[in-house]
Design a protein around this nucleic acid. Structure first.
Lengths: 235, 235
DNA sequence: CCAAAAGTGTTCCTCGTACACCCATGC
DNA sequence: GCATGGGTGTACGAGGAACACTTTTGG
């Protein structure tokens, strides 16, 4: 190994993903049981070390795919955690990502030995190292970003109804929104394409299915939308 | 050196700061000439390696203080750059911060051997490695955040006038804002405390000095303010 | 026909923007 | 007094929030 900058210490560099899913009623988080010593068996975020010739973002995607089978997932780097003693074994710098997946697409991999499990936010188990803090910060980041940009769509299947979408937003912000304003506001963004079919399972009248208008989505993604009423109170 | 996670590669971890200043007319960026080989003498961001027992944020503050003499500076981690070949010598992961300083407080350190210099954004020299990309992304992040939160105050002295503040915003967004609306909007935030004295240098009528209302500042910092007209067009 | 959920209409009001105008002062 | 820049007043309109009301359909 060439070391051209002498006298400097090298560190382990890891990626960890906070994986959000939505089951139709609640936001959930996918955790695994740690396979390495110490704290073997304790709950942990999905993570792994960055390989020698690998970009960190690629590492995060790789770990996600290895463990959930999912590709092309929405994933966003949000913070580096690097306190000297955060891993008691050896100093490790970890780059934290949050990922939004369609929970229905997720299937537990057969190769997966460490029992991944979905947890509700208000029923999280004790976690290794500083992972609880990482989760807390990921959730804040998710709320912040979702108030301005339409990222929560990533948690739903390709087809969804507006009431489903509203339940999702209500789950993320732990509040009730006004149904009537919510649907009008979303429709006015021009991000949705109405489909012919209705979902008749959850109501008698039935709610129309929608899908994302992909080109409008990409175009409006950057600008500031007002998707959450009175967002200030959440920060 | 204990290595308890065998078979993993360790990397150099650096911090680099994009240091913004404002001279009253234009946004500027503080660069230094690289002291290490290769590319010695080429312009570079201020950075350094993370020390063995040091938090990355502390490393960024330390480097900033060593090189500018400034403490208690606004500094914010915004992205990790880690492409395998970004440093041709040896793989280095760098954590990028942007810093906002009062350019008048900055004084070149006597110990500083590598000729730090302020550059205008539209007259940047060629830079080392991927530093130009880092600057571009820092600027985007600055614009994004400053549209929602009152961070640009950090670039001004403790006392400032509203026209100064406006010039600063106009510099950041490379546009003209309406003077009349700008002052009313800022005053309505409740963030400013009017002082008795006027600045008579830049106009005949003179503009009152203001300072930040520190408690309001901290309290309102988190919520979404609308400090920039039509912000959407910048993203 | 009634309950329950989807979705539309209506009103109020805040707040952002545009632009006319007044104010203070040095020369 | 007049040019220059600082600041207030006013008017219009978009859009967010609150809430009454209609629509659909299964039982």
């Amino acid at each position: 190994m060439r070391q051209e900058y002498p006298g400097q210490k090298r560190f382990l560099v890891a990626v960890d993903s906070i994986i959000f899913g939505f089951d139709g009623y609640n936001i959930k988080l996918l955790l695994v049981q740690r396979s390495l010593s110490p704290e073997t068996g304790k709950w942990s975020l999905m993570g792994g070390f960055v390989h020698p010739e690998e970009d960190p973002g690629a590492a995060a995607s790789r770990v996600l795919q290895e463990r959930t089978g999912l590709k092309d997932v929405y994933i966003e780097q949000f913070h580096v955690f690097g306190k000297p003693d955060r891993d008691p074994v050896e100093r490790t710098i970890t780059i934290a990502y949050f990922a939004l997946i369609d929970i229905q697409q997720y299937e537990q991999q057969l190769t997966e030995e460490n029992n991944p499990e979905w947890f509700l936010l208000d029923a999280m188990p004790e976690m290794v190292f500083d992972h609880a803090e990482m989760v807390a910060q990921a959730l804040r980041q998710l709320r912040y970003k979702a108030a301005l940009h339409p990222i929560l769509f990533q948690l739903l299947p390709g087809r969804f109804t507006i009431p489903q979408l509203q339940a999702l937003y209500e789950g993320v912000y732990q509040t009730k929104f006004d149904d009537r304003n919510f649907s009008r506001k979303l429709l006015s963004t021009g991000l949705l394409v109405k489909l012919a079919e209705k979902d008749k399972l959850s109501s008698k009248k039935g709610a129309f299915y929608y899908q994302l208008d992909q080109s409008n989505y990409e175009q409006k993604f950057g600008s500031f939308l007002n998707l959450v009423p009175n967002p200030d109170k959440f920060f």
